[in-house]
């Protein structure tokens, strides 16, 4: 095995010469698509900032603190239902794409 090392080159030469670029057949795209990551980041930021932000905006516009509290709670629930809707939509689109692919395979 030692004779095969470097294919006629000395070890130092083999190290110095640039590594020949092999066409990589491994999948290097991230496991989670970027649009999903951005969606999750957006919802995290909305969940943190929207309810408390709505509270202070409502107080600034002259609403009583109780009304402002109710507005904050409603804002939190709006974020939740938007999330459920977006997750539902995501799943539907994915399923449609999959059935399309399967139909193509069947033809």
């Amino acid at each position: 095995m030692a004779s095969r090392r470097g294919q006629g080159k000395s070890y130092a030469e083999a190290v110095a010469s640039p590594v020949p670029e092999k066409p990589s057949d491994s999948d290097v795209t991230p496991a989670v698509p970027t649009n999903v990551i951005f969606k999750l980041l957006g919802f995290s930021v909305a969940m943190i900032s929207l309810p408390i932000g709505m509270y202070f905006i409502a107080v600034k516009f002259g609403a009583s603190p109780t009304v402002a509290g109710i507005i904050a709670a409603v804002a939190a629930n709006v974020v939740l239902f938007t999330y459920v809707y977006v997750a539902w939509q995501d799943d539907r689109l994915e399923r449609e794409a999959e059935t399309k692919k399967n139909n193509k395979k069947a033809q």
């Binding site: 919802f43 969940m47 904050a72 939190a76 974020v79 997750a87 799943d91």
Partner: peptide, 19 residues
């Protein structure tokens, strides 16, 4: 993605306390 709903709901509980 669809399974994360309970986590979002738990976050809302904390928002109620915060309010």
């Amino acid at each position: 993605m669809k399974s994360l709903v309970p986590v979002v709901m738990s976050g809302i509980i904390a928002v109620y306390g915060l309010v």
